[in-house]
Design a protein around this nucleic acid. Structure first.
Lengths: 138, 138
DNA sequence: ATGCGTGCAAACGATTTGCAGCCGG
DNA sequence: CCGGCTGCAAATCGTTTGCACGCAT
């Protein structure tokens, strides 16, 4: 299933939308909207910053990309295979990310919440670290 | 050990600092800097917004208050007993919060990180839900 | 006295939005 | 053609910072 197939059905395919998708396809890890915008400009694809934000938001809603927020409050995006709930292990130096299943965390969250009488538990779990490659590179 | 004792040693005790501490002592759950600022003004203690931010930051550094960020990127603060690492279960409707130990999460984070070759693993774990009281109240 | 602490307003950085014109279907 | 899409700039929003003055020590 191509990205065009996933998104095209609901949205118009414009030059900028295509450029955005291509940029996202090409990147390995999580990047900020601003960084993606820079990439596009550098690559010669002139796209407005606002359009990048709007597009990213739409893609996130459509489940094509996954987004998370850094501790500093910046949003990061990344093409994401699965739509189901999962977490990430993000390299703080290169942005490379691994998708993680946290079955133990899921159950932990639910039981802790229940033990305190809380319901409708939502949880935010993100891991940050330095990947082997970046560690080696120094 | 009083708050004055904890903070006074390193910082000057001013009217606004005292007001801020009092406001924080009185509140049960996590509140935003802006909300705390409103409380102070409402109570008659005129304190600048910037001062509230600066004070909160200082208290957080001193380990007197605990801070966390909502999914929307807003910082919330709360008087916090223990300085050690722990997580929170926050009521999304009243801000009431329970401090949580996550031994299982700690080890899970470390092992997952290691399994992927990542080092210096940091983790962000926050739980949000609706507390029993708020659920009852509707 | 000294210089930390404060208030105010301007600065900021990320993100959003209003609006007139453009272009994909 | 028509309505969604875009660019640009102005507007938000939470938070930070520069500066001159005040007050705790």
């Amino acid at each position: 299933m191509s990205v065009e197939r996933e998104v095209g059905a609901v949205q118009r395919m414009t030059r900028q939308r295509a450029a955005l998708l291509e940029a996202i396809e090409g990147q390995g890890g999580f990047r900020s909207a601003q960084a993606i915008h820079h990439d596009l400009r550098a690559r010669g694809d002139a796209v407005g910053l606002a359009t990048v934000y709007r597009g990213l938001q739409a893609l996130a809603d459509a489940g094509v990309v996954d987004s998370l927020r850094t501790a500093e409050g910046e949003s990061l995006y990344r093409r994401c295979a699965r739509a189901e709930h999962h977490h990430h292990l993000v390299c703080r130096s290169c942005g490379r990310a691994e998708e993680i299943d946290g079955p133990s965390v899921e159950s932990w969250a639910r039981s802790v919440g229940g033990a305190h009488g809380f319901v409708d538990i939502e949880h935010v779990v993100e891991l940050f670290g330095t990947c082997a490659e970046c560690r080696a590179r120094g």
